[in-house]
């Protein structure tokens, strides 16, 4: 099972780096959706011996939400706004990938003293979840469109989710559902806001939303 977990970790890293190097927004959404599906498998993988109904339920919920609902929402917003790609990001794509690798190094270096206790957990989980968080942040900071920022936020959430499922394990279901619901609502709200922004401004370029300052 550890083998599978390692695979998931590697997939996470790869999707993150690919995200950093992709300019087409459709592709980005798909990547994030794929990441969501991969993560959805995690609860099942963690409890290798006894896969309970709870883990399955969580996995299904996660896959549905992250793999299906969010992408659809974002695709719709994208169609409304009528844009296809991220134009002229603050940080170029190749530099972004280097920054991603640097972030990975930083994550590993930062967490090298921390030994998170837990059975059958890959030592890479915590650094990679931190790495995913950083990539999400980087995406928010370095991309111009509001959609990209939502994507960044989703990646950030994915990082946290990784940590949550693997390390903390069985947090009470109610909390987890509350968390999922909250994230869902967050993305939903962001979608609505993007919709309105698009209607009011005729663009969803967050870079140009800078009238409030000082």
């Amino acid at each position: 099972m550890n083998m599978l977990m390692e695979t998931v970790v590697v997939l996470l890293i790869l999707t993150n780096l690919m995200l950093l190097g992709t300019s087409r927004l459709f592709a980005c959404i798909r990547l994030v959706a794929f990441q969501g599906v991969v993560l959805g498998c995690l609860p099942v993988l963690v409890h290798s011996g006894h896969v309970g109904a709870r883990a399955v339920g969580l996995a299904v919920g996660t896959i549905l939400l992250k793999g299906v609902v969010f992408p659809r929402l974002l695709f719709r917003a994208l169609r409304e706004a009528n844009i296809r790609r991220e134009v002229d990001p603050f940080v170029g794509y190749s530099v972004s990938i280097f920054a991603g690798i640097l972030a990975l190094a930083v994550s590993i270096w930062t967490t090298r003293h921390l030994t998170i206790p837990g059975p059958g957990v890959s030592t890479l989980i915590f650094p990679v979840s931190l790495f995913t968080i950083l990539v999400g942040l980087f995406h928010i900071v370095s991309r111009r469109t509001a959609i990209s920022q939502v994507l960044g936020y989703l990646v950030l959430e994915n990082g946290i989710y990784t940590f949550a499922v693997v390390i903390v394990g069985e947090v009470p279901l109610m909390v987890e559902l509350g968390v999922l619901l909250d994230i869902y609502v967050a993305v939903f709200v962001m979608g609505i806001t993007i919709y309105h922004i698009n209607r009011e401004f005729d663009h969803i370029d967050a870079d140009q939303l800078d009238s409030l300052k000082g």
């Binding site: 930062t110 942040l137 928010i140 900071v141 111009r144 870079d207 800078d210 409030l212 300052k213």
Partner: peptide
């Protein structure tokens, strides 16, 4: 510090987090 760019604002948060962690 406050030029209206939401990117920068998030950057501050990220940098604060990293700086504190390190």
């Amino acid at each position: 510090l406050q030029v209206g760019q939401v990117h920068l604002y998030v950057l501050y948060i990220a940098l604060t987090l990293l700086a504190l962690l390190i």
